[in-house]
Design a protein around this nucleic acid. Sequence first.
DNA 1: GCGACAG
DNA 2: ATCTTGTCGC
Length: 265
Amino acid sequence: MDGEGASGESSSSNQLENWKKEQDRLKKKLITHDDFSWQGSETLKYVGGVDISFSKDDSSVACACLVVLELPSLRVVHNELSLIRLQVPYVPGFLAFREAPVLLQILEKMRDDHHPFYPQVLMVDGNGILHPRGFGLACHLGVLAHLPTIGVGKNLHHVDGLDHSEVRRLFQLKENEDKKVITLVGNSGFTWGIGLRPTLSSLKPIYVSVGHRISLETAVEVVKMTCMYRVPEPIRQADIRSRAYLQKHQLRLLKDLGPLGMGNF
DNA sequence: GCGACAG
DNA sequence: ATCTTGTCGC
């Protein structure tokens, strides 16, 4: 007897329990207030952004990207790409176990090289504490990398009574008609993050939450400082560059294979 | 119990 | 995440 089906357990549910335990363990190290040296003697100059794009053909092939932008110019001063093969599936609530390892590897390489543009704060394409157990990808990566992080979601992960219809309702309240930022307070009374819309007329906000070693107020400030479009530049650039790299890669495959079909005639 | 569910 | 052109509007 392997104790899988008969006991009502399965390896996948065991895996989820292990992942939950790991999240709870790392969560004890989470810092949700400003804990950095910029704003004091130093100033905030280098803001990082990370994102991962996936191949449309082979869903296990992906490209991770870390960019660093210089403030206040928003110029990209550093760009690191990594083509990888992901084995861990995406499970809602456990994104970090799929994406954090590669991102951490890129960050550690840059830090170990004592790179002058190593980011002072990192924006992550995924939530921070706006998460079922209050520990999303941005928190996870922040704790592992000992780096201040900000969670930026393009979609809302429903939690504590918050969902897209509720957010839409909040933005359409008379008292909020002149606000770009609304605070996301759940049924429990806890503040999970904020919704930020680029213009007063736009319906689709981004969701900002605390990652690690930063307060929500400061996180929102940094996001506003880096926003030219709906998605803040660090994440937008990482998205553009990782996607472009993949397309270049598959163009190369098409170039090798495509002409064979035509060229032999 | 069923459905919802970041990327 | 990814598949995808034009198109409605400021």
